[in-house]
Amino acid sequence: MKRRKYTCGLDAAIDVMGGKWKALILWSLQTGTMRFGELRRSVPGLSERVLIAQLKEMEACGLVHREVFHQVPPKVEYSLTELGHSLNTALLPLGEWGEKNMARIEAIARRGQPRS
């Protein structure tokens, strides 16, 4: 997330989201608190290194809460903050749009045509 003055609300939201992985992590956490391994399995294709980096960024901007339990073996849980829940609520219509148009988007991609 960049430290700058935003030109509009969409500019701020896109800066917080910063790519596809954060939205998918947020979506996974909507069901509740998860441990690192559970979260990694819930987002196919996401590497451990990228998940660690994304979670750090999301914690720094207040979307995710990280709870460390000092025990052996170590235990860390991740959950959404109030800000994270509100962003997920805002993403819901986008997810619904994707569900509604998924077959069409996939068909276009299979044909190798530009998406429009």
Rank of each mutant, 00 (worst) to 15 (best):
M1L: 13
K2T: 13
R3A: 11
R4I: 14
R4N: 09
R4Q: 15
K5G: 14
K5H: 14
K5P: 05
T7R: 12
G9W: 12
L10C: 07
L10V: 08
L10M: 11
A13W: 12
A13R: 10
D15A: 11
V16D: 07
V16P: 00
V16K: 04
V16L: 14
M17D: 03
G18T: 05
G18I: 02
K20L: 09
W21T: 04
K22M: 11
K22G: 07
A23C: 13
A23I: 10
L24W: 03
L24T: 01
I25Y: 02
L26S: 01
L26R: 00
W27S: 09
W27I: 02
S28A: 15
S28W: 05
Q30A: 11
T31S: 14
T33E: 15
T33Q: 14
T33G: 03
M34T: 03
R35D: 11
R35K: 15
F36P: 00
F36L: 10
G37F: 09
E38Y: 12
L39F: 10
L39W: 09
R40P: 02
R41N: 11
R41K: 13
S42M: 04
V43H: 03
P44E: 08
G45T: 04
G45Q: 05
S47E: 08
R49F: 02
V50S: 08
L51G: 12
L51E: 10
A53P: 00
Q54Y: 01
Q54D: 15
L55K: 01
L55F: 07
L55D: 01
K56T: 13
K56N: 15
E57Q: 14
E59S: 07
E59N: 08
G62T: 06
G62H: 06
V64C: 06
V64E: 02
V64R: 02
R66H: 12
E67N: 09
F69H: 12
F69G: 09
F69C: 13
H70Y: 05
H70V: 10
P73M: 05
P73S: 06
P73E: 07
P73C: 07
P74M: 11
P74R: 10
K75P: 00
K75D: 10
E77H: 13
E77G: 06
Y78Q: 04
S79V: 04
L80C: 02
G84W: 00
H85N: 15
H85I: 12
H85K: 13
H85S: 14
S86Y: 03
S86D: 15
S86N: 14
S86R: 11
N88Y: 10
N88G: 12
N88M: 13
A90R: 04
L91A: 12
L92W: 01
P93K: 08
P93E: 08
L94P: 00
L94H: 06
G95K: 04
E96H: 06
E96F: 03
G98C: 04
K100D: 12
N101I: 03
N101G: 00
A103G: 06
R104M: 11
R104F: 01
E106W: 00
R110Y: 08
R110T: 07
R111D: 07
G112Y: 05
Q113R: 08
Q113I: 02
Q113H: 09
Q113G: 07
P114S: 05
R115V: 07
R115G: 01
S116I: 03
